[in-house]
Amino acid sequence: MNVAIEDLHVGYAGRNVVAGVHLMAASGEIAGLVGPNGSGKSTVLRTVYRHLRPTAGRVLLAGTDLRTLTPGQTARQVAALPQERGSDFELTVREVVMMGRTPYKRAFAGDDHEDRERVAHALAAVGLAGHQARRFSALSGGERQRALLARAFAQDPEVLVLDEPTNHLDIRHQVDLLTLLRDRRRTTLISLHDLNAAAALCDRLHVLHDGRVVASGTPREVLTPDLLAEVFGVRAAVTEHPLTGDLLIAYDHRAPLPAPCG
């Protein structure tokens, strides 16, 4: 399922946060949103999983305007891992992940064999198969992150929307997550601060700055030294990773540029 965002405008608290954003993710493509803090990445993603309503523009799922779908229809097609994540669930890990099956259930229906199978597979995929009975509130930050990702996988969506999913994960689990997303090949919109991770994972990148898309294309097309200087305010060399051949960005940590204007 492809996702297209057309002329998106979002404002709240008397401020225009996103203005005229156009971006897309083709079916089965991983599209990354990158940019400085406050550039509008999370705001754009929140419109896709209907946490925010745009003031203008539209979000299309396979050509269908999101506004014409019911919440249940949307939940069967889009699963999200937002930055605002509950930490006080008095539920077990299994119960939290089983919440991903809610869009497929009738009211008061119990868990069936398919639900249990999908939850088990999702927990195994994120490395939490042996933690089903633990309280969610007792997990570490990284474990909570993986449990909520398992909930999104258990939802079996056409589209994944992930807002900074590597936050709180140690390096091994970051690598595992990126490998898992790459292997699953679901249509994915993902925001990342780590540009090297974005370059390794994403088929397409959209660079946001001050609520607008300033560059779109493959990682090699958009992550140039000039763009990194203009948008992120850093000196950087762009080269090739010696192990994987992916794009590798090396930053000059000793001589930062002045902060970008705007």
Rank of each mutant, 00 (worst) to 15 (best):
F136P: 00
V234E: 04
L128Y: 05
R101Y: 06
C261I: 13
L81V: 13
V21H: 02
E230C: 02
A25S: 09
L257P: 07
L61D: 03
V234D: 07
L60H: 02
L160V: 08
V18E: 09
H131L: 04
L201N: 09
R106Q: 14
A198S: 12
G72R: 15
E95L: 05
D246H: 15
R235T: 14
L181N: 01
A229E: 15
H121D: 13
L128I: 03
C261H: 14
T70S: 15
T74F: 00
R94L: 11
R185L: 03
R186A: 02
A147Y: 06
R212D: 00
D210Q: 14
R76C: 09
D252S: 13
P103R: 06
G100I: 08
L52Q: 05
L201D: 04
R67G: 12
L257S: 10
L66M: 05
G217M: 04
A125D: 12
Y12L: 12
V78S: 08
L33K: 01
D88W: 13
R151P: 02
R186S: 05
E29W: 15
K41Q: 13
P36Q: 12
Y104V: 02
E164Y: 11
V18L: 06
L128C: 09
E230G: 01
S39I: 04
D252N: 10
L123Y: 00
R85W: 03
L223G: 11
L169V: 13
T74W: 14
M99E: 05
L91P: 03
L227A: 04
H168G: 07
T244P: 06
Q132E: 15
N37Y: 08
D246M: 09
R76V: 06
G72Y: 09
R182G: 12
G130D: 10
L45Q: 04
G72F: 05
E29N: 01
L23A: 03
P36M: 00
Q83R: 11
H168K: 09
L33C: 08
V214H: 03
V175L: 15
V207Y: 00
A133V: 03
S140G: 01
L61T: 01
L181T: 06
P82E: 02
H131P: 00
T218A: 08
V222E: 00
E114Y: 06
G245T: 12
R101E: 11
R186N: 07
M98P: 01
R118C: 04
E95S: 10
D194Q: 12
V96M: 11
A199F: 13
G63D: 02
N196C: 07
G32A: 14
A236Q: 08
P54S: 01
L45W: 05
P36V: 10
D111P: 07
L162V: 14
P219T: 02
E29Y: 08
D226K: 07
L139I: 03
Y12P: 09
R146H: 04
S27F: 00
T244V: 09
A259H: 15
L33F: 14
T187R: 11
S27A: 15
T70F: 06
N16V: 15
E230F: 00
A80Q: 13
H168I: 12
R135K: 09
D183G: 11
E95I: 13
E95H: 07
R53G: 01
R204E: 01
V17Y: 05
V126K: 06
K41W: 03
A25W: 11
L60F: 02
V44Y: 09
T92G: 11
A197T: 05
P36A: 04
T188D: 10
H113S: 13
P71T: 11
T239P: 10
F108Q: 01
R76T: 05
V119D: 12
